[in-house]
């Protein structure tokens, strides 16, 4: 049994100095994913069989571009946090775990920048 007070236990945000930030951001992005994924599914379905010119013309609309960008940010953030937990659960070697965690962060960041670059390029005109 801990003799520490509840206040004492939350001060300093635990051993990782991160508190519940990871858990909370997983929920925040889960909630933002809901409307954004509905938008994404509608966007994809309405462009099935569309030519590249039609896709580019749609993304030229600022609302579509901004919603697409928000979707990619929210989804990539959520999946980075999710895979981080999977890695922490199953990858036990100290070095390989660190490498996997770094690869997860770098890969999702690269995907995000690539997606945003593509969206902005289409939106601002090719």
């Amino acid at each position: 049994m801990s003799m520490r007070t509840p206040l004492g236990m939350v001060r300093g945000l635990g051993s990782a100095r991160d508190g519940t930030h990871h858990w909370w951001m997983q929920r925040v992005t889960a909630i933002s994913n809901i409307p954004l994924i509905i938008f994404l599914i509608a966007f994809v379905i309405s462009h099935l069989g569309a030519s590249r010119a039609e896709v580019v013309a749609s993304v030229a609309n600022p609302f579509v571009a901004i919603l697409l960008a928000l979707t990619m940010i929210s989804v990539l953030w959520h999946m980075r946090l999710g895979l981080q937990v999977v890695i922490e659960d199953y990858v036990h070697g100290h070095g390989t775990r660190l490498a996997a965690l770094l690869a997860n962060s770098f890969f999702t960041a690269a995907l995000g920048v690539a997606a945003l670059y593509a969206i902005l390029k289409m939106s601002f005109g090719l």
Partner: peptide, 23 residues
């Protein structure tokens, strides 16, 4: 959890499609 990991690959496909449309 398994679907979450699978979706990781799915998002790669989504980004592939977006970059192709922009190329």
């Amino acid at each position: 959890r398994a679907t979450g990991v699978a979706l990781y690959a799915g998002v790669v496909l989504m980004v592939w499609w977006l970059t192709a449309a922009a190329t």
